[in-house]
Amino acid sequence: MIEFDNVSLSFGKRIILDKMSFRAEFYEKIAVLGGSGEGKTTLLKLILGLLNPDSGRILIDGRDITVLSESEMRESRMKFSIVFQEGALFDSMNVYENVAFSLREYSALPEEEIEAQVRELLAKLDLEHAIYHMPEELSGGMQRRVAIARSLSGCKPLMMLYDEATTGLDPLTADNICQLINELAAGESPQRLGFIIVTHKVTDAVKVADRYMYLRQGKIAFDGDLSALKLTADPELAKFVEELHYCIS
């Protein structure tokens, strides 16, 4: 379980998170909505311990990660896999090497075994044909897929973290990625691989998530399910959700 307890963080004079508290189970399917610069990526980085808050506690399975050192953090980070905005592929490596990265770094597996695993994963994500391409030769959607493949290789995460997984993609490709996210999160609640997707595209969020949080001025201004989201009284969030009504009509 992830638990934020009065977490505050500011960069210089800018307050990004202001005494934020929430809880989430690993198997939940959460969408965090919010405008750009509201601290969505920062939130994911805090969960992974890539940043430390100024104050407050972040508990992962009851353990406060804000006091851990970089090497102690490893265990808690292994519970998650992250797909960053734009994919964050290593641009000096081809698709194969990107996906093999964590296997090579961490397991003492022989190269044939690594290759077999990578090929299996790429096949699952429909990427075999791009195996020796460099990231810059791939379309945005393919890059996201490779990033998802890399985040799944060599580890068994309990929860996926997607940072703007569909932003900047055309609607068809975005839909494709949403489908992939849904496939990965298939199954019944306690066992399934849950996720937190961070996005400002509410139309994509509703395709995958069943719990919604709205981040504004460092606080969680809304936390609830789809029906509550549609009925929200918050004028700014209502603007976000307005888009949904057009889609349905």
């Binding site: 992250i82 960053f84 905005q85 964050a88 592929l89 290593f90 641009d91 940072d163």
Partner: peptide
């Protein structure tokens, strides 16, 4: 591009 973050995550 968050590539450094990815290194740390791994």
């Amino acid at each position: 591009g968050h590539q450094v973050d990815i290194l740390r995550v791994h």
